[in-house]
Structures are given as structure tokens and as C-alpha cells.
Amino acid sequence: MVLEDIKEGNKRIKWKDRVPLAYWKGNPHVDPSRRDLLKCNLTREQNWDTLLYVQDWDKEAKEGYKQSNLEDQCTHRFYDFFIRGMIPLQHFWPINDQSKCSSLKFAVQWGNNNTIQAEAIGEEGSKYLQENLKMELVYDYMYHLLNEYSKLLKFRPTVPPGAVELTPETMTGAVEGLHKKFLEDSLEKSPSEREPCDLPPYDRTVLDELREKKLNALNQVQTWEKEYWENQSKANNN
């Protein structure tokens, strides 16, 4: 349901009409990197071409999450998803974690000066999200993960004394509102009509090629970024 909402939200505003700034909205208190990101927000002294917002989930919960619908946030050009299978410059634009602010600034400038390529990256990222985060694929992943993990166990698992079985009723009984609705929406009411996808055999070559492709893309962006700031420095000194 959420994926469909995001897909529809993407259609509301054309890429060329979206806010040409880097956009992020979330909880900065769960990770030091997120707190560091807020240093890149707009100030009187510095403009990194960013719009960064702190998400107050307690407040959102009380107000029915009216300001946090994902489909309503498709008004900006630049947002990212961190998924292992995504390729820099194909599905997303990478940001240097060691120099977030200047890296974000360059990303926005590059995107605004290369709108066709930037839009293509955004479309590929959205397409990847729609095709690879379907719930049936998530369940396939969980199935294979648990099966592979079970092969590593050195003991036979048993139910410990006093254990309480979790059921749909016990999981949803203590919650209300949208929290309960989301839990109920994710409930599988019957077995799947298809078999789980086949887990491909381990192939080191495929993994090495993927790593090399990512590394080459990251190096390309770093080269572009270095050249951009060198040119900016020369222009400011002239």
C-alpha cells in the first residue's frame, strides 16, 4: 500500500517543477551521522542548498501522521534510499560521509545543471524501490535468511519454559489507531499461492563485479566533486 502511495505521489509534480534542493526529514537522535547531517542546514552564514527537517514521531503519532505521508514528500528532487543492491549514479547519488555539507551542495548543483540525467537517476531509484521492496519479496528474503541461518546452528532450538506465543490478536490488542491499522494491513491471511523464489548459488565473481561497479561510480563522483570545488576556489580567488 505504501509503495503504491509513493508511486502516485511521484506523479503529482513533474521533476522540473520540484524544489531544486536536497531534502531530508527524519529522526536525528537515532544515529550520530544523522545529527551531523543537521549541520548542513540553511543558516544566515551558509547555504548548502538543503532543506533538512527534524521528525517528531511522538507529535506525528498524536496528530495521525498527517505531516509524514511518504507520498506527500515527492515535491523535492533529491532524496535517497540506502539499499545494498542499489548502484550509485544509477539508482541514487552518493554523498561523502566525511564532508556531507559540501558533498550535498555539489550534488544539488550537479543535478540542477544535469536535469535529464538527474531525473533518470531518480526514476531508476523509484523503479528499483517499486520492484524490489514488494512484501512478497521481503517474505522470500526472510524465508531464505532463516533457512540459511538454521544451517549454522549447532543445537536444536526448543521453546523455553514460560514462553508466550505471539499471535495476531496479542500483537494488535495493545495498540490503537494507525499503528494497529498498519499491523493489520501487513497480516497475511492465507498461504502464498506461489513457491518462494530460488536462492541463486553463491558466485564470488558476481559480488566482485557489483563491488567494482559501485566503487567506480563512487570514484567518478569524487573526481567530479573535487574538480567542482577546485574551480569554485579559483573563481573566488580571481
Score class of each variant (00 low, 15 high):
residue 193 E to A: 13
residue 155 F to V: 04
residue 133 L to N: 12
residue 90 Q to P: 04
residue 153 L to R: 09
residue 222 Q to D: 11
residue 132 N to G: 06
residue 206 V to L: 10
residue 34 R to D: 03
residue 177 G to R: 04
residue 110 W to D: 00
residue 144 H to Y: 06
residue 3 L to T: 05
residue 124 E to A: 15
residue 160 P to T: 01
residue 201 P to Q: 08
residue 221 V to G: 00
residue 123 E to N: 14
residue 209 E to M: 05
residue 211 R to T: 03
residue 216 N to G: 07
residue 29 H to F: 13
residue 210 L to Y: 14
residue 215 L to N: 13
residue 13 I to P: 10
residue 61 A to Y: 10
residue 106 F to Q: 01
residue 113 N to T: 04
residue 2 V to C: 14
residue 82 F to K: 13
residue 184 E to I: 03
residue 33 S to N: 15
residue 11 K to M: 06
residue 15 W to Q: 02
residue 160 P to Y: 03
residue 198 D to R: 13
residue 197 C to E: 15
residue 108 V to K: 00
residue 72 D to Q: 07
residue 221 V to M: 01
residue 74 C to F: 06
residue 103 S to M: 01
residue 235 A to M: 14
residue 189 K to M: 11
residue 104 L to E: 00
residue 62 K to Q: 13
residue 65 Y to Q: 07
residue 1 M to L: 15
residue 228 Y to E: 01
residue 85 G to C: 03
residue 78 F to N: 03
residue 176 E to F: 09
residue 129 L to C: 10
residue 91 H to Q: 07
residue 137 L to F: 13
residue 52 L to T: 01
residue 98 Q to T: 10
residue 238 N to M: 08
residue 43 T to E: 04
residue 11 K to T: 05
residue 131 E to K: 11
residue 171 M to F: 11
residue 141 Y to M: 08
residue 152 L to G: 13
residue 223 T to V: 05
residue 139 Y to K: 14
residue 128 Y to G: 05
residue 111 G to F: 00
residue 57 W to A: 08
residue 131 E to L: 08
residue 175 V to G: 09
residue 21 L to Q: 06
residue 179 H to M: 12
residue 121 I to V: 13
residue 62 K to T: 02
residue 229 W to K: 00
residue 96 N to D: 15
residue 78 F to R: 03
residue 63 E to A: 11
residue 32 P to G: 02
residue 82 F to D: 15
residue 228 Y to H: 08
residue 223 T to F: 08
residue 82 F to V: 07
residue 47 N to S: 09
residue 167 T to E: 08
residue 227 E to A: 11
residue 4 E to I: 04
residue 179 H to Y: 13
residue 228 Y to T: 00
